[in-house]
């Protein structure tokens, strides 16, 4: 039974810098620059894992920071600053994918279920895999990419829960919805992932 708090494991080492955020809101560019540098590397990791491309990831990070600057008055401090950045990042990523692929994959290729099965057949087992760090990084990226099969709203919640590591209340604040809505989306997202994994495993047997 898993009792470890994911939030504790993923808590950033630096504080959220509430004074930096307050100063940045007043137009202090140096404070905002410091905030960016505090969270930039973590954000870039997320962006690379989401997009699979370093150049695109850098663009995503840049766009995310610029959008964060413009939206600073809307950040109420009810979630971690990094969670809020991730919510912007995942929106930007979705928009950039939509520009590339205006039609959903399932429409183009048909058989969303079959595609999910084929994709998840390559998702590795959860047990710690021996091997190089490069292999682990690649596996981790593929696990993250498995979220792509979820509907957008469920994907956002599952992503913020496990990859930004915030509480349900923080996620609700970042996405501007109720905690009940976050719970429902998290539950349905996990259900869908579990079903897809189960189907893939049954096909491999």
């Amino acid at each position: 039974m898993s009792t470890t708090s994911n939030r504790d494991l993923l808590e950033p080492t630096a504080s959220d810098g509430l004074d930096l955020i307050d100063r940045a809101r007043t137009g202090d560019l140096e404070a905002f620059d410091e905030l960016c540098r505090q969270h930039g590397d973590r954000l870039l990791c997320q962006a690379i894992a989401l997009s699979g491309d370093s150049a695109m990831a850098e663009d995503l990070v840049q766009e995310t920071f610029i959008a964060a600057w413009r939206g600073l008055p809307r950040f109420g401090g009810r979630c971690h600053f990094f969670t809020w950045l991730c919510s912007i990042l995942i929106h930007r990523h979705r928009n950039s994918r939509r520009k590339k692929w205006p039609l959903p994959f399932s429409f183009l290729f048909g058989g969303e279920r079959e595609q999910a099965e084929n994709f998840l057949a390559t998702v590795p087992d959860l047990s710690p895999t021996p091997g190089s760090s490069a292999e682990r990084e690649e596996n981790a990226t593929r696990v993250l990419r498995s979220l792509e099969k979820l509907p957008a709203k469920q994907r956002e919640v599952v992503y913020l829960r496990f990859y930004a590591g915030d509480s349900l209340e923080g996620i609700a604040a970042a996405l501007d919805c109720s905690v009940g809505t976050v719970k429902s989306r998290l539950f349905h997202g996990l259900e869908k992932l579990r079903r897809m994994k189960s189907i893939a495993e049954n096909r491999n047997l």
Partner: peptide, 20 residues
């Protein structure tokens, strides 16, 4: 469901690290 959640928790800590 715990196995599934743990896989994502582990993945979040093993993502490739980069510097901006």
């Amino acid at each position: 469901t715990s196995v599934l959640c743990d896989s994502h928790t582990t993945a979040s800590r093993q993502l490739p690290s980069e510097e901006v």
